[in-house]
Simulated assay, not measured.
Amino acid sequence: MCTGKCSRCIAITLYPLVVISIICNIVLFFPDGNVTYDKDGHITEEVKYMGGLIGGGVLMFLSIAFAGVGVAGGLYSIIVAVLSLQNGPLCKTGLVWTTPFKELTDDSHYLMDKTLWSLCTEPKNIVEFNLGLFGTLLATSCLQVILCATQMINGLFGCLCGTCNKEAQIA
């Protein structure tokens, strides 16, 4: 495949991933579809890092011009998503807002033991909410890193070997 066609293919594939990342990050600010959690400061810490909006969104748009920035943005989004999946959501347990799964002392992990999810009483279904959206961010970010890395390699080959431009071949 010519370097120009490859670039076009990658750009077309990145656009929907960017939109998905931005939407996921925005929706994460409204657990249970409610704005009061954000207003009261009861949002999972990693949501505030805006990995999907900054890393998977804005920096990924810049990747069209700077594929290396896109790789960095995708890696940032991956790190934030993994941290969030590891730490679990901020939720109300009893009367206190906490991250109950962050420092579990026993061998169980909330991702493997669904019975622990009942520790979170508010917002409703926050564990599933975070798992779904941060899982989606993780998947889209991995694809973005692969595509941007491919774009970097494609650009390198384009610089070293030239493009497949028919006009350039005639001259």
Results as ranks from 00 to 15, higher is better:
G33T: 10
I20H: 03
G51K: 04
L90M: 10
I126V: 15
G68D: 11
G74C: 08
L17R: 02
L28S: 02
I23F: 13
K102Y: 10
T105H: 14
A65H: 15
V19L: 14
E46T: 14
T36Y: 15
N25A: 04
K92E: 15
L131C: 00
I78T: 02
S77E: 07
S84F: 05
I20M: 08
N25D: 15
L119P: 02
L119E: 13
P123T: 00
L28C: 01
S63F: 11
L17M: 11
E45G: 01
E46A: 03
K48R: 14
W97I: 00
G132I: 06
L28H: 03
I54S: 05
D107H: 12
G68H: 12
G55P: 09
T115L: 05
L53T: 08
N130K: 10
G41A: 06
Y76M: 14
D38C: 09
I43L: 13
G94K: 05
L133Q: 01
L75I: 11
E103S: 02
P31C: 01
I54N: 07
A11K: 09
P123N: 01
G41Q: 12
V19Y: 08
V96D: 13
T105L: 12
L75F: 13
Y49G: 00
D106G: 01
V82F: 14
I26N: 05
V58G: 01
G73P: 15
V47G: 00
L111K: 03
I64R: 13
T93V: 15
K102H: 09
Y49P: 00
L83G: 04
I64E: 14
G70H: 15
I22F: 11
G41I: 09
V47P: 10
G41S: 06
L95W: 06
K48F: 12
G94F: 10
G52K: 08
A81T: 11
K39S: 10
S77M: 04
V18M: 13
V47L: 07
G70W: 14
L104E: 12
V69C: 03
T105Y: 10
T115G: 04
P16H: 05
L133T: 00
L28Q: 06
P100G: 02
T105D: 07
L133S: 02
E122R: 05
S63V: 01
V47A: 02
V47T: 13
L131Y: 10
A67Y: 09
A11R: 12
